[in-house]
């Protein structure tokens, strides 16, 4: 099965994703008071969750 690969991709990739997102907000590049930045943050997180769900479902479907 692909569980190790799934964990590897989302832990290492997720670390880069999270750190860069955090730095952009901490440095003031994006502001939660700005609607466009707020929307971008939400879409970023939803996109990550969506990709994870697709990969998870894919592994389960392939293994069934």
């Amino acid at each position: 099965m692909n569980w190790v690969q799934l964990a590897y991709e989302y832990l290492v990739g997720g670390l880069f994703f999270g750190v860069t997102l955090f730095l952009c907000f901490r440095a003031g590049a994006a502001q939660r008071s700005n609607w466009s930045d707020r929307r971008t943050l939400i879409i970023s997180l939803l996109g990550l969750a969506g990709y994870f769900a697709v990969h998870l479902g894919w592994i389960l479907a392939a293994s069934a």
Partner: peptide, 24 residues
């Protein structure tokens, strides 16, 4: 098999830095 898609499906991790940092 379907794992040929790996190369195209892992770019989302880069998207926040592109959208909030590099593009502006």
């Amino acid at each position: 098999g379907l794992s040929s898609t790996m190369s195209y499906l892992n770019d989302w991790f880069l998207v926040p830095l592109f959208m909030l940092g590099w593009l502006p």
